[in-house]
Simulated assay, not measured.
Amino acid sequence: MPTPFDATTKELVRFQPEDWLALLGLPPEPCELVDTDLATVSTEADRLIQVNSTPPYLVHIEFQAGHDGHAVPVRMLRYNVLADAQTSLSVLSYVILLRPEADSPALTGAVERLRPNGSRYLAFEYGVIRLWKLPVANILRGGLATLPLALLCDLSATTAENVVSSMATRIETEARVESKRKLWASTYLLAGVRYAPQIAGKLLEKAVAEMKESMTYQKILADGREEGIAQGVALGERRFFLKMATRRLGEPDAATLAKIEQASAITIEQWGDALDQVETWAELVKA
């Protein structure tokens, strides 16, 4: 299922595909987006970049905001094989995790299958990038297309306000008018992964006017992405609630995380109100 941020991340890859090579640790080369018919399996699988090196190869990027750890490795393998079959090019696959709640022990970067005798008959590797562990400086000095990811990175050495200021400097000096609007719109929408809407709005208040004028933003709305934005807001509120609750109750187990993932915004708000009245996760999220 497409994530609430699917249209945004897809647009950023289309914007300047060569910028994503640096984020993935790949050598700079001329790039172009490839439109292959992987939509028969899922619309999420169309972020394919052809790198025109010698020889050429493909880069497949998958973005993950929700906890779907056990399904992701198999999905990465399936998309990799499909892209290979349709293009006859080597395919490098990467999953970019947008927030800690998307992580899982299953995301090892490898898929193996064994014969009954224990010998391996299949080995597939894919890259895993956990944005919250990536120093924000890496993004701030990278390409413009990856700049909207900055607020989701490791900010331990700086502040969100400083990050936005650094972004503004680059966007104002390097981007054209419509690109500025596109980048700020994407930044605002992706900020919902980590921040409640009030916080995101405060951080990006100077960019709101640009965002509302963005053709990308208007297209997202026209395509029915109001629902996606609402889901993004819910993700931000859930992230904030989980952070506060973990400070009080400790790390939740997998079953509790799954329950939080499925909870409505109203339920999250009720749990937040009850947080100072309980001592355990079980008490807080009881049915």
Rank of each mutant, 00 (worst) to 15 (best):
E251N: 02
L235W: 04
S42R: 12
S166F: 01
D223I: 09
D103W: 08
V91F: 05
A168F: 07
L23G: 04
L89R: 11
E178L: 11
S93H: 07
Q262M: 13
K219T: 13
D46E: 14
P100W: 10
S119V: 12
E125T: 15
E172D: 15
V285S: 02
I229C: 01
D46S: 08
A71P: 02
Q16L: 11
A45P: 05
K133M: 06
G127Q: 04
A265S: 15
L249P: 02
L98K: 06
N162F: 07
G228P: 01
A123G: 12
I229S: 02
T3K: 09
S165H: 11
L275Q: 01
S166V: 05
D253W: 00
E161N: 09
L58G: 10
T187C: 13
L122I: 09
S179D: 15
W271D: 01
T36F: 14
H67T: 10
K202T: 15
V91M: 07
R14M: 04
D253R: 11
V193C: 15
R115D: 10
I171T: 06
D276C: 03
P17Y: 00
A196C: 11
R130A: 02
T9F: 09
T256M: 03
I129Q: 04
D253T: 03
D223F: 13
A160G: 12
L190I: 08
R78A: 10
Q262C: 07
E237F: 03
V285C: 00
S119K: 13
L97I: 07
W132Y: 03
V163G: 00
L12T: 02
A191N: 06
V233L: 04
